[in-house]
């Protein structure tokens, strides 16, 4: 299968200029390749740098050194060097990210929050809403919530909205930070079904899954995050 993520020598340290220039080294020489149809689970203790790695893969954190290449429209884009406009273009068509918490946009209805990534790709409003409704139905989000903004929803409801928003545009590369963390077993299972379906359809996935049952079900491979990087077969 085609490689869609290629990370070479990624190093990330935070320098806290206003705390006596304290330097927090987090990632040291990370190498990671992920092909279409793979789901790589990042493993490591709290504070090891799993979320930091995921954010570097999204261009949200700036790499201190190394290359973070994402396959975009038949070419490689190195997010560590790309201009903001290029990063946004990669995100628009090729790179999805589901954060742990939904960042709510005031006043926008759930249906439109979920449909937005399709609208950004130029898909017409009615068609985008229909697909959003189908996805929300599969995630068992009660229909009476669809027309409300998600601001007042419970943690688990917001998380399902977030997942739907992250999956709807079927981007070839998908990054997931604890997508099932606030869900009960039944809902976590439905979310896992959708993620596995995306992978089987060729999405390259990198995820952080605290729940080992979910992780074992979804991951095709584990990647240990620590200062001594190594690959462990699943």
């Amino acid at each position: 299968m085609e490689t869609l993520i290629d990370v070479r020598g990624l190093t990330k340290a935070f320098v806290l200029h206003n705390r006596n220039e304290a330097r927090i080294p987090v990632l040291d020489d990370v190498n990671l390749s992920v092909a279409a149809g793979e789901c790589v689970a990042l493993a490591g203790p709290s504070g090891a740098g799993k979320s930091t790695l995921l954010r570097c893969l999204y261009g949200n954190y700036l790499a201190s050194a190394g290359a973070v290449c994402i396959r975009h429209e038949g070419a490689w884009v190195d997010l560590a060097r790309a201009a903001p406009r290029e990063i946004l273009a990669v995100r628009l068509r090729s790179l999805g990210y589901v954060s742990q918490f939904l960042r709510v946009i005031p006043r926008v209805s759930t249906l439109d929050v979920v449909a937005e990534p399709l609208r950004e790709l130029g898909i017409e409003a009615a068609a985008a809403r229909t697909r959003a409704a189908n996805l929300l139905a599969r995630l068992h989000l009660p229909e009476y919530l669809w027309h409300l903004p998600p601001a007042t929803f419970s943690g688990g409801e917001q998380q399902r909205v977030n997942i739907a928003r992250g999956l709807i545009a079927k981007k070839p590369v998908l990054l997931l930070d604890e997508p099932t963390a606030s869900l009960d077993v039944a809902n976590a299972g439905r979310v896992a079904d959708l993620i596995d379906e995306a992978r089987r359809n060729g999405t390259a996935i990198v995820g952080i899954f605290h729940d080992t049952v979910i992780r074992d079900r979804l991951a095709t491979r584990l990647h240990a995050v620590s200062t001594q990087p190594q690959e462990i077969p699943a």
Binding site: V15, H17, L62, P84
Partner: peptide, 21 residues
Amino acid sequence: TGLTDQVLDDPQHPYTQLLVA
């Protein structure tokens, strides 16, 4: 200067770090 979420979540300059904090 940079991508909005990157500058806000991972500010590089001492002044930006102060502003965000």
